[in-house]
Simulated assay, not measured.
Amino acid sequence: MSDRGKSAAIVSVDCPLVKLPGHLLIEVFIRVPISDWTHVSCVNKHCANLFREECLWRAALVRSFPLAAKDKIWPGPIPRGSSKRRYAALYVCRNIFSLENELDEIAGHTYLFLKEQLEISKMSPSSGILHGIIIDQFIACDQSPDKAHELASKIWLAVIDNLEETEQTFLILKRLALEGEIFLPYPYSRSYRVQWKVFERLFTDFRDCFDHTDFYDLLACAKHRFQPIPATWLGY
C-alpha cells in the first residue's frame, strides 16, 4: 500500500490502529507524512491530545532530525522552546534555507520568530528592533558581523516572500515601507535587498489594495530610497 493509502486508512475513526496505546500510536503517527498530521490529529480526542504532548514531538524530532537530539548550549536572545517548536524550525529550514551544522536550527527559529512578530496585529516591535535581535542572535552564535548581516537578510527575504496575500500582509508591508530607516551602524541596518523586497511585493502583489493616498505616499517613499524604480511599480 502506498503512503497515501496508509494515511487514508489511519485517518478513520473505525481504524483499529487508533485504539492502540499512546506510545504505539506515536510510533505510527511519526511515520505518516507530515501533510496528513492535521487530519490524523482530528480522528478523535485521544489523537488530538497526543499531538499536544511533548513526547510525540520529541519522537518526531529524533526520527526526522537525528542530530537535533543532541543537547546543545542555545545562545542568543531568541528562545529555542519545545520539541514541537524545534521540529517546526528545522522543517522550515530544510524547506527554505540551505545551511549546514548548527545554523540550520537557529535560522529556522529566527524565521519563526520574525514571522510571528511581524504578524502581531497590535504594537509589534519596529523593524529596526527586530533586525537588531536577529543580528544579536547570529553574533551570539560566533558569526562575524558580515555573516550575521548576510543571514539576517536571508531571513527577512524568506519571511517577506512567504507572507500570504492577505489584507494583514498588506498592512504589515505598508508599515515596513513607511517606517523609514533609522541610521544604525553596520550590521544593524537592514540591507538594500530587504527594503527593495518590501516595496516590490507592495507594488506587484497588492496593487489593488491601495487607495489614492496610500499609493502616492508609498511611491514617494520608493522614489526617495531607490533610483531608478521599475516601471512596473508605476503601473506600466
Score class of each variant (00 low, 15 high):
Cys209Met: 12
Phe206Ser: 07
Lys223Leu: 13
Tyr216Glu: 07
Leu178Ser: 12
Arg201Lys: 06
Leu218Ser: 02
Leu219Thr: 05
Tyr188Pro: 07
Thr213Tyr: 15
Asp208His: 08
Pro187Ser: 10
Lys223Val: 12
Leu178Thr: 11
Asp214Arg: 05
Phe226Ile: 06
Tyr188Ser: 10
His212Leu: 14
His224Pro: 01
Glu200Tyr: 08
Phe210Ser: 00
Leu219Met: 15
Lys197Ile: 05
Phe215Thr: 05
Gln227Val: 09
Phe215Leu: 09
Leu202Arg: 04
Leu202Trp: 02
Arg190Gly: 01
Phe199Trp: 00
Gly180Trp: 10
Ser189Cys: 13
Tyr192Phe: 15
Gln227Thr: 15
Asp205Gln: 11
Phe210Thr: 04
Asp214Ala: 06
Phe183Asn: 14
Pro185Asn: 11
His224Lys: 11
Ala220Thr: 09
Cys209Asn: 09
Asp217Ala: 11
Glu200Ala: 07
Glu181Gln: 14
Pro187Asp: 01
Cys209Trp: 06
Ser189Glu: 13
Cys221Gly: 03
Asp214Ile: 04
Thr213Phe: 10
Lys197Phe: 08
Phe210Val: 05
Cys221Asn: 01
Thr213Gly: 10
Cys209Leu: 13
Asp217Asn: 07
Ser189Gln: 12
Arg207Pro: 06
His224Cys: 10
Phe206Pro: 06
Thr204Pro: 00
Val194Leu: 03
Glu200Val: 10
Tyr186Arg: 12
Cys221Lys: 00
Tyr192Thr: 13
Arg193His: 14
Asp211Thr: 03
Gln195Gly: 11
Tyr186Pro: 03
Val194Gly: 00
His224Tyr: 09
Tyr186Thr: 07
Thr204Leu: 10
Arg193Ser: 15
Leu218His: 07
Arg193Lys: 15
Glu200Lys: 07
Leu218Tyr: 02
Leu202Cys: 04
Asp208Trp: 04
Asp214Ser: 07
Phe210Cys: 05
Glu179Gln: 04
Thr204Gln: 08
Lys197Met: 09
Lys223Phe: 04
Asp208Gly: 03
Pro187Met: 04
Val194Phe: 05
Ala222Ser: 07
Tyr188Thr: 08
Phe215Trp: 09
Phe183Ile: 13
Tyr188Ala: 09
His212Thr: 14
Arg190Met: 13
Ala177Leu: 04
Pro185Ile: 09
Gly180Asn: 09
Arg207Thr: 13
Glu200Gln: 10
Leu219Arg: 03
Thr204Val: 12
Phe206Cys: 04
Ser191Ile: 11
Leu178Gln: 15
Lys223Ser: 06
Leu218Glu: 01
Leu218Arg: 01
Arg207Ala: 11
Thr213Leu: 11
Phe183His: 13
Tyr216Met: 11
Arg201Asn: 02
Phe203Ile: 03
Phe210Trp: 01
Asp214Gln: 08
